[in-house]
Write a protein that binds this DNA or RNA. Structure first.
Lengths: 142, 142
DNA sequence: TGAGAATAGTTTCATCTGAAACTATACTGA
DNA sequence: TCAGTATAGTTTCAGATGAAACTATTCTCA
């Protein structure tokens, strides 16, 4: 039986690339803004959609329930986000960026975009469209 | 400023996809063969190249030194791998699959390939070539 | 109704993680 | 040659992780 060539094994390639990218991107905001990866992800979701439950954040980010719960707790302590509870279902929280949290978010977004641009600088527009499509296909399978 | 659209933010998409894929693939071997992800990665490297140092495994897998050291310790305990030390540089180890380890490896490889095939079943040959090329480009940037 | 199932979120616990410090060996240049 | 530096690998420690158990609330249907 032929050995598995790790270099060209798709799950492995995705994993190595994604880890490198996540780590590099985290370096952009971790120290300067004192945020962990889960914390930033929660903020990124809340920057897009407000008044959502922790569960929705889980769905959207594919992060674990526990990870989200703890990231939310830390963001509350830092006053980057606000939490109310739904009137009609008091199990459910409604999370949103605080004014201060939004200011942090707005500082990070351009840095994140800049990183993304640098990352994909070698790709022409057709490549980008293709990459998008391929990732969507894989995502749908996975 | 426009909000960052997480759905189309490349680092985020890569991370979500890679996590899902890694987890699903791990499910294939974790329980049945009692292997963690780092353990399987070390075995996968040794299935390809023998008599290499732990450091080479780090390079090849992009895993942390510590993670590799521990995975190696566990694989030694399970007798899936063998370790000698170089005669000419006794800091450096020479790792290889044991006969039993190779049997495990040979059982896992077809399962891994089958998973990869299922994952990329929606891609035609041109897509696959493109994906390869795009991942390489991103890898080179990251 | 109200008992059992379902859902949102938290806590616990055992394990995993990686930075930093450490051991042991090998290299380098004054 | 040998003091200082570099390298391979391990251990320690402080924090991160996620499965499972838990609390609190809401739904469901007999």
């Amino acid at each position: 039986m032929k050995a598995l060539r790790l270099e060209s094994f798709l799950p492995y390639r995705l994993s190595v690339l994604a880890n490198q990218v996540s780590t590099q991107l985290a370096a952009v905001y971790a120290e300067r803004f004192d945020l962990t990866i889960p914390e930033w992800r929660v903020m990124a979701v809340l920057g897009e959609v407000s008044d959502i439950s922790a569960d929705f954040v889980c769905d959207k980010t594919r992060m674990d329930r526990v990870t989200v719960s703890r990231a939310v707790a830390r963001l509350l302590a830092k006053r980057h986000i606000l939490r109310r509870f739904c009137a009609d279902d008091r199990r459910r929280s409604r999370l949103a960026l605080s004014a201060g949290g939004r200011r942090v978010y707005q500082q990070i977004v351009p840095l994140a975009r800049r990183y993304e641009n640098a990352l994909s600088a070698g790709l022409d527009p057709a490549d980008r469209a293709n990459l998008d499509r391929l990732l969507s296909l894989l995502q749908a399978r996975a």
